[in-house]
Design a protein around this nucleic acid. Structure first.
Length: 966
DNA sequence: AGGGTTTTTT
């Protein structure tokens, strides 16, 4: 921004307006003092109650000091309407058409010329101008009005100006404030002088009428209001303003009052008019408050009437002492809108509302003690807000750290940290808290960064047209009206715009509807009437289009164009999610409850189309805690979208890493969560890239050590055969200490195979190279695998085959696994040969096991016989030797009985030994197989098998013979 | 089965 050139300054000086003053305004009594202070100080604080005339007179005083020549006198107001009306008033007092000497600028509109000296604007506009004019060179004087309201904009501006003033010694600053919190502002600006201006308020008498302490419920409040109204009506005529926390209380009170009989107390009048007043009310309904009729009026208002709107002609105030206050909970990342006790400053402001026309009376529905126990001031907005937007703006203005920024009151570090966290989740700042490319672009948008983020995402998803409409809608109050006398009718009218999947899409339908209305409109009057009939706010619809137009222009500057092909549901909602990831929810078991980010639980707002839909996954435009934590403006989403959109915000957990032979890779199950919500429960993934070290170990253990691997590599066949061979020995010997443990085999491979090998493919590649140098590099040696020699395990002791008397050989299998059906020795016999088996031969098992078997027989003898055989091992040897020498065609038990009789003269009764008591592995297991090698039956009882399968065996045997004959 | 204040922005 360029300063004025010398000739322009000269011209401005020459035509400087000469203000005149209405001397009855209190502020003008202090004119000289103010002028003197302004000449001597860079900053002056002026405080005075409403009615002092400071807002309109101070700019004129500045003109008299020849301010406004080198730059404009910038004068800010918290609200747009105020900026415009104040501009009009000052213009009138200076006898200049609006836009000439005095101009104004608010969002979307303004009226100002190069000849203007005074510029009224909202504080938001001045703040926005810092982006293009960081030194605010356009101004030589600034008036920050209503600073006591302590909005986010005001606090930010005052911090910014604190930094700016040393760089602009020529700039004068006036801060005005209503209440006596002036000292805080003075301290903030290096002990600037404070000039107090008396207000022109009439005295207000305060009565305290606390609710009865034993029963502080809703009904009690209603009763108290009625009593207060009765009390005031009895005092004399005059309108009453009742401050209530919200719309619901207003409605209840309105009903209570309508049912109440005022007539007796107040005869001869036309009655009582009850007027609700809150910001969401339609324009027409609000208008009623400003057009007094004949009846006595009771206005039931929220906080709008405390600062934003001045209800005329109020003589009495009833103050419930309550308000809904917006607070951001950084812990849950949601806004709270809970009913709180108002501060003393707020209570005084409310009381002051009845001292504007005459002496007033204010009844407080709480105790005086309660009043004195309350905090002096309402917490400024900056201590109650999410700081993401503030931080983003500060970063884009490059004005240093948030932590050291000269705020009037600095937000606590955890709130600042939370702001950074949200920005980081939006991708606006990096790990060094510096703005990213995305952050820079977000800062260009005059909307919430979350909403701006959707617009950036919409470019990728090709749905800018739709998202611009939705983003604009989310940046203002819902254009749909729902007056409480006509709720059902309004809902009915709005049903026309619903989409059963998503509340966001209603905005698109409503947009098209209004667009159509505009195209076919006959007159604005008719259009407004049509909107009212259909429960739509014409003003908000227009505002919507204005914001949309602004966003549209902005994306044009960024070189983006809206899509011409309509976007899909998925594209639109994926874009929305980019800004709203923290607002996702998953339906819980509990009726109507959703689990949200970071363990929060929320309910769907009743007006949503998804209220009853039981959608599994949803996203909400906002989460606000009122009577419950409610999600408003909801859509169904597909959780499969989330992972890609959330990127690094997702947390991944792995379980059960395992070898997969077919792919020759280690795989694991992946679980993905976002803010603690499980978005992918169980997914099979390649584990090699996730934990290469563990994967390598699993590969070696499973594929190479355990042999679960498919390869024709000679080393593998060799090593497997070797291990198998030694395992066989263990089965035969019925002991497990022959093969070295797996850890040693693992250690062997681990030492040879390079670190980077983590799967089959990598291994084979390496192996082929390694084997060129040494073909046997991976060969295990027998000695490496055996813990001891196992010399007693010979072919004679544990033969591979059972040789039948006719020369047939039947394979034997050994197993050491007590309890297993095949524990011990198993002979495998083809069905045709089953009848050839002789129990007497099977009794003797194999040489390596017969000693154990005979020992068992001896040990289970009755005591008096057993005693005579001691020492048993010697007796066993003797029996086995004798049998080997003589041969024996008797069954084993008979042979034993004979041996015992001879040796001890004792007769062993036939029932002494029961096969059922014998350890299984001491009886030969017989497995019968059919032609195809499939098992037909298995048992240790030969006679039972032969009984069961004997006939079949016989036939099979005959058939075989016949076939041989052919 | 059930409802929320207010304001502002290149």
């Amino acid at each position: 921004m360029k300063k004025f050139s010398p000739d322009v300054i000269a011209r401005r000086l020459a035509s400087l307006p000469q203000p005149s003053y209405a001397e009855d305004l209190p502020v003008n009594a202090r004119r000289q003092e103010i002028m003197q202070a302004l000449e001597q100080h860079q900053v002056v604080i002026i405080c005075g109650e409403t009615g002092s005339g400071k807002t309109t007179q101070i700019p004129k005083i500045c003109l008299e000091l020849k301010r406004g020549v080198h730059g404009l006198i910038g004068h800010t107001q918290p609200r747009r309407i105020a900026a415009r009306t104040v501009a009009a008033r000052i213009a009138e007092e200076l006898k200049s058409p609006l836009g000439q000497t005095v101009g104004y600028k608010i969002r979307f509109t303004g009226k100002i010329s190069s000849d203007s000296y005074i510029k009224l604007m909202t504080d938001g506009i001045l703040l926005a101008e810092t982006q293009v004019d960081p030194l605010l060179q356009a101004y030589d004087t600034l008036i920050i009005d209503e600073a006591h309201e302590r909005s986010l904009n005001i606090d930010f501006l005052l911090g910014y100006l604190n930094q700016l003033l040393p760089k602009r010694p020529d700039l004068k600053l006036i801060v005005t404030s209503a209440t006596i919190d002036a000292q805080r502002f003075a301290r903030h600006f290096n002990n600037a002088p404070v000039i107090e201006v008396t207000g022109r308020l009439f005295p207000v008498e305060i009565f305290y009428r606390p609710l009865t302490a034993d029963d502080e419920d809703e009904g009690d409040l209603q009763r108290a209001i009625i009593h207060a109204v009765d009390e005031l009506i009895a005092l004399g005529p005059g309108d009453i303003l009742v401050f209530l926390p919200g719309e619901r209380e207003i409605r209840e009170t309105a009903e209570t009052l309508r049912k109440h009989h005022f007539g007796r107390l107040w005869p001869g009048r036309t009655g009582v008019e009850i007027l609700p007043l809150f910001a969401r009310l339609s324009f027409a309904e609000q208008e009623r408050v400003f057009q007094p009729g004949g009846a006595r009026r009771i206005v039931l208002a929220t906080n709008v009437a405390e600062t934003s709107l001045t209800v005329p002609g109020i003589h009495y105030v009833i103050d419930t002492g309550l308000a809904r206050i917006n607070r951001y909970s950084y812990r849950n990342k949601v806004e709270q809108l809970l009913v709180e006790k108002i501060s003393r400053a707020s209570a005084n402001q409310r009381a002051g509302r009845c001292g504007r026309v005459a002496n007033g009376i204010c009844i407080r529905l709480y105790a005086e003690q309660d009043y004195h126990g309350r905090p002096e001031y309402t917490d400024p907005e900056i201590l109650r807000s999410s700081l993401a937007a503030v931080i983003l703006r500060m970063k884009s203005l490059k004005i240093g750290d948030v932590e050291s920024f000269p705020f009037l009151q600095s937000p606590p570090p955890r709130m600042i940290a939370d702001g950074y966290q949200l920005l980081s989740e939006l991708g606006a700042v990096d790990e060094n808290k510096q703005l990213t490319a995305v952050g820079w672009r977000l800062s260009k948008f005059p909307i919430d960064p979350k909403i701006a983020r959707m617009i950036l995402a919409a470019k990728q998803e090709n749905c800018l047209r739709e998202i611009l409409i939705i983003a604009a809608a989310l940046s203002l109050q819902d254009p749909r009206d729902r007056p409480f006398e006509h709720q059902a009718a309004a809902d009915n009218a709005h049903r026309h715009f619903t989409d059963e999947r998503s509340d966001f899409l209603s905005y698109l339908k409503l947009w098209d509807y209004f667009d159509d209305l505009l195209k076919h409109k006959k007159s604005t009057r008719k259009l407004i009437a049509h909107c009212r009939e259909h429960f739509l706010s014409y003003r908000r619809l227009r505002e919507w289009r204005e914001i949309h137009g602004q966003l549209h222009a902005l994306i044009g500057e960024l070189g983006l164009k809206p899509n011409e092909i309509p976007a899909s549901y998925d594209e639109i909602h994926r874009s929305l999610l980019s800004g709203l990831l923290g607002n996702i929810g998953f339906k819980t078991e509990k009726e109507g409850e959703y689990a949200g980010a970071r363990g929060i639980k929320f309910a769907i707002f009743p007006a949503s189309v998804l209220k009853k839909a039981k959608a599994k996954w949803v996203v909400a435009a906002e989460l606000v805690e009122t009577s419950k934590l409610y999600a408003r403006c909801i859509a169904r989403i597909d959780p499969a979208w989330l992972e890609k959109i959330a990127g690094n915000l997702c947390k991944k957990y792995y379980s059960d890493p395992h070898w997969q032979k077919k792919q020759a890779q280690v795989m694991a199950y992946e679980r993905v969560t976002l803010y603690g919500l499980m978005i992918v429960p169980k997914r099979l993934v390649y584990y090699g890239s996730i934990d290469p070290e563990e994967s390598r170990e699993i590969f070696i253990r499973s594929a190479l050590v355990a042999g679960d691997y498919h390869t024709d590599a000679p080393f593998f066949q060799h090593n497997q055969a070797l291990i198998h061979n030694i395992e066989e020995l263990e089965h035969k010997a019925r002991r497990q200490d022959v093969l070295v443990d797996e850890q040693q085999i693992f250690a062997f491979y681990n030492a040879i195979i390079p670190h980077k090998i983590i799967n089959g493919a990598g291994f084979e590649k390496w192996r082929k190279q390694a084997e060129q140098h040494n073909p046997q590099v991976l060969f295990l040696q027998r000695e490496q695998l055996m813990r001891h020699g196992a010399h007693d395990i010979t072919e004679v002791q544990f033969p591979e085959n059972l040789i039948l008397p006719d020369g047939n050989q039947l394979p034997l299998a050994y197993r050491f696994e007590p309890g297993h059906v095949m524990d011990g020795v198993t002979v495998r016999v083809p069905l045709p040969l089953l009848n050839r088996l002789d129990a007497r031969q099977l009794d003797y098992l194999v040489p390596g096991l017969i000693r154990d078997k005979v020992t068992w027989y001896f040990k289970t003898l009755p005591k008096q016989i057993r005693r005579m055989l001691v020492p048993l091992p010697q007796a066993v040897t003797e029996f086995l030797e004798r049998r080997a020498n003589t041969g024996n065609s008797l069954p084993l038990e008979n042979s034993l009985a004979q041996f015992i009789l001879r040796k001890t003269t004792q007769i062993v009764p036939p029932e002494t030994w029961s096969a059922a008591d014998m350890p299984m592995h001491l009886r030969m297991n017989i497995q019968v197989a059919d032609d195809a090698g499939e098992e037909l039956a298995m048992s240790r009882d030969l006679s039972a098998l032969q009984m069961q399968l004997g006939n079949a065996a016989q036939q099979d045997f005959m058939k075989h013979n016949r076939e041989h004959e052919k």
